[in-house]
């Protein structure tokens, strides 16, 4: 009898499912890819076939301008792969279209979470706890110092800064896929119905969200407006544009950034951020550990992030665990 879970292996550039000869979130082009969500470090282009949720495929199409090999799968739908493997896509609560992938083979159940969070997000369905034998979890914020505050508290901080400086604008750096749209949706939910101004790089992704039924309200492009129009307004741009030439056109912006890293003062200061907003689409330490308890797998495999601390937590709680060394995941701006 083969060793348990020998059919699924972590290789440097992705998770390989041997009986079906397919890869989960490979960082290099492969013949058969199964993709958890649309962030660039998980969803690379150039694969022969890509199986993902319709929203993730739409995001990839936006990014790589091709639908070649796209094979949609709905949440909860089980598909048969070669070699006696079944795959089911389950909501991960990370961004629009994000999924955990449940793989079943020879009576063993393995879940690859991709990225996930446990908090409510108006732009995507919530994470579903699903029993399994091996739980392959992300660990982006896998240190006990990471405790994301309630999102409402951070939104209130942002709105207060806006009220206190009527002649300036608040410029928020936010990841273009997911964070930006969630931020907008949370602002709308908090009763902020003023126009929100976007950096050009944000526009198409916001439109795509709207096509998938996420209402983002009155969005406008910074480039269509004068400096004076932007006074007292919220402007959203990718983190890389925060301190770049582009921001010179804004009226004395208050520099904000929406990211889980903002929990650490020095991280915020390094980026010249004046208004740190601790808003993350990843699970914080409490969510990571609670999820492992909720799912209660026989083994936990930990990838991309601060594996060491979460591994230690598993040891302290008598849970079998190991760290996987996967290359190519980036988490700096989320």
């Amino acid at each position: 009898m083969p060793a348990p879970f020998a059919w699924i292996r972590a290789e440097p550039h992705g998770i390989h499912v041997a009986p079906a000869d397919c890869w989960i979130d490979p960082s290099q082009p492969v013949e058969r890819a199964r993709v958890t969500h649309g962030h660039g470090d998980h969803a690379r282009g150039g694969h022969g076939q890509t199986v993902a949720t319709p929203a993730t495929l739409a995001i990839m199409e936006l990014r790589y301008a091709t639908r070649d090999g796209a094979t949609p799968v709905e949440y909860g739908e089980t598909i048969r792969l070669p070699g006696g493997v079944e795959a089911t896509y389950i909501p991960a609560g990370h961004v629009l279209g994000s999924a955990q992938i449940l793989l079943e083979h020879a009576g063993e159940r393995v879940i690859v979470t991709g990225d996930y969070k446990r908090r409510a997000d108006p732009t995507c369905p919530p994470f579903e706890v699903t029993p399994c034998d091996v739980f392959i979890t992300e660990a982006t914020f896998g240190l006990p110092v990471f405790c994301h505050p309630p999102v409402g508290q951070e939104i209130a901080k942002l709105l207060k800064a806006l009220r206190d400086h009527a002649d300036r604008c608040v410029l928020v750096g936010a990841y273009a896929l997911g964070k930006a749209q969630r931020l907008i949706a949370e602002l709308r939910g908090a009763g902020h119905h003023e126009p929100i101004y976007l950096h050009g790089a944000m526009e198409r992704m916001c439109r795509l969200y709207e096509e998938f039924g996420v209402d983002l309200g009155d969005l406008r492009l910074v480039s269509d407006h004068s400096k004076d129009d932007l006074r007292g307004a919220i402007v959203i741009c990718p983190p890389g544009a925060l301190n770049d030439r582009w921001s010179r056109r804004l009226p004395d912006p208050i520099t904000a950034m929406a990211s889980g890293w903002m929990r650490v003062r020095q991280r915020a200061r390094q980026r010249n951020v004046e208004l740190p907003l601790v808003i993350s689409d990843h699970a914080d330490w409490g969510e990571l550990t609670r999820t492992i308890e909720d799912v209660n797998p026989a083994e936990t495999w930990i990838t991309h992030g601060r594996e060491e601390a979460l591994l230690r937590w598993c040891q302290l709680h008598q849970r079998r665990a190991r760290a996987l060394a996967l290359a190519g995941y980036e988490d700096e701006d989320d």
């Binding site: 240190l143 006990p144 110092v145 020095q266 601060r306 060491e308 601390a309």
Partner: peptide, 8 residues
């Protein structure tokens, strides 16, 4: 691990 990451 936390102290090393945060730096303070």
């Amino acid at each position: 691990l936390s102290r090393d990451f945060v730096g303070d």
